[in-house]
């Protein structure tokens, strides 16, 4: 077996308004080898087949996929907002590429800044984000952003933005301003 640098936890969120938010977010499985990642990936639904309101999150073991976790509190996310029609053409490729960036430690020494990644399945447009631990670490955030954008194969004119969780949390409409863009 080929060990990964970290042990990762796959989480699943299903929006059930009758239950507290945190109860809707559950860890599905943990793995720390390349082989076990693929066994998991093959076993679960593709992101594009999930119902609206659901999320997958992949986070390093020990970090919860929420702003409140102390490893996320000062951090932020590189956010990719997809158009509705991209669910059927690009979402699964972009999410898998995101997973491979994380598992392969693609951000060099800044991979330790990465906390995890989230895909939100939403009627108005799906989102994919890479969460990092320190929004003020401009060098790390920018390196991750440049590598991530290149790996996703986005054109130069496509702009992705980085938002601090503290700014997102302060906005009820989730339109936090971009702290950085690539």
């Amino acid at each position: 077996q080929h060990p990964l640098h970290y042990r990762w936890v796959l989480w699943f969120f299903k929006n059930d308004r009758s239950r507290p938010w945190q109860e809707n977010l559950q860890p599905v499985t943990r793995f720390n080898t390349v082989e076990d990642f693929w066994a998991t990936y093959r076993h679960i639904k593709l992101a594009s087949k999930l119902s609206s309101g659901c999320d997958y999150a992949l986070f390093k073991d020990g970090i919860q996929p929420m702003w409140e976790d102390y490893r996320n509190k000062r951090g932020g996310r590189w956010l990719l907002s997809l158009a509705k029609q991209q669910r059927h053409t690009e979402l699964d490729r972009l999410w898998l590429e995101t997973l491979l960036c994380l598992l392969g430690e693609s951000f060099e020494e800044f991979s330790q800044e990465v906390c995890g990644a989230v895909v939100n399945i939403r009627t108005k447009g799906d989102k994919i984000a890479v969460w990092t631990s320190e929004a003020e670490n401009q060098a790390g955030v920018m390196h991750i952003g440049h590598v991530y954008k290149e790996r996703l194969g986005l054109s130069a004119k496509t702009i992705i933005g980085y938002q601090a969780h503290a700014d997102t949390a302060a906005k009820s409409n989730s339109l936090a301003k971009n702290k950085f863009v690539v």
Partner: peptide
């Protein structure tokens, strides 16, 4: 050392049967 894998390496394992 750091376990760093490029995407092609990771993708090579996608359809391998699990080890027993």
């Amino acid at each position: 050392g750091k376990k760093q894998y490029d995407r092609e390496f990771l993708l090579d394992f996608q359809y391998m049967p699990p080890c027993i």
